[in-house]
Amino acid sequence: MNRLRLWLLAVGGAGLAALLVAACLDLPAFGGRWHPYGDRAVQASLDRHIANTIASVNFDQRAYDTLGEISILFAAVLGCVVLLREARDEHRAPPEPAEVARPVRRYALLVLPVALVTGLYVIAHGQLSPGGGFQGGVVAATALHLLYLGADYGALERVRPLGVYEASDSLAVCAYLVLGLAGVLAGTAFLANTLLPYGTFNTLSSGGTVPLLNAAVGMEVASAVVVLLAHFLDQAVEIEEEHGS
């Protein structure tokens, strides 16, 4: 029986390989000047006054894929929350305050707001310069954890109410969905960028719904990373096993 399955796999694999090779032979030469997909993508983004074509592809032409990506991140963090929860035979010891060198602590407290504002800047200017919701969200979340690196986990816990971040995580995904449904309600298509005016080129209000989708993704990624790191930190710093078990 096993042999039959291997033969089936081999036949299927060979067919797939043949098709892939045939497809690759028709690809344009590497480094050439002819980019049919690229030219159309740039044209579509310029029509909608979006300076950063990648943001246009991510949040306008293929916004549906980005919906898939943020639900993947949401599901992954949900999985971690379920797996890393405190088991019955574990207890949670409060984190003991740690002595950190004075200059390192001052640096952490100084860079904390600077990194947060830089993260928000990267989110807000997603459709103008390189960056966007995902990159800015990760930077903002990492900024928060400077408190753990500069001081101790107790300080971070005092500043980071976990319930709020879990709520804002799911709220942001819902915001992305509602923005998409708004397109349907307005009579066009799901996640279609035809609702808001496209504004003037290379300004913050350009690109219709792209900045809003960027902000929703930024909020989602930031809170998802905070929740993810929270459970990793709980396991690494607080949760301990019962002895003798």
Binding site: P95, E96, A98, E99, V100, A101, P103, V104, Y107, D152, Y153, A236, V237
Partner: peptide
Amino acid sequence: VIASRALAGGFREVRGG
């Protein structure tokens, strides 16, 4: 500079936590 300072003994009583 701060990272070098941290490496050169910035986290003495942290026990890695």
